[in-house]
Amino acid sequence: MEINKTLDCIGLFCPMPVIKTKMELENMKSGEVLEILADDPGFIKDLPAWCIMSGENFLEIKNENGVVKGYVMKK
């Protein structure tokens, strides 16, 4: 998977990671992939739920030693 941009949301709580994701995607082109790093465990459920509502393409989310890594492709 080619990552076009990485957004660091480590240390931030809900709703900030989701809102920053939305704002970051606004500056990206269709088909580009955004990687989001977070440590709020709620983000694992929040990111796919937000993608359903916003219509963005959810790719993957994983927890690597407490760091959550999410991947979204801009619609």
Partner: peptide, 12 residues
């Protein structure tokens, strides 16, 4: 405001 901003960021 947490819910309002999240909803607004979710195309609502």
């Amino acid at each position: 405001f947490t819910l309002a901003t999240t909803a607004a960021a979710s195309n609502m």
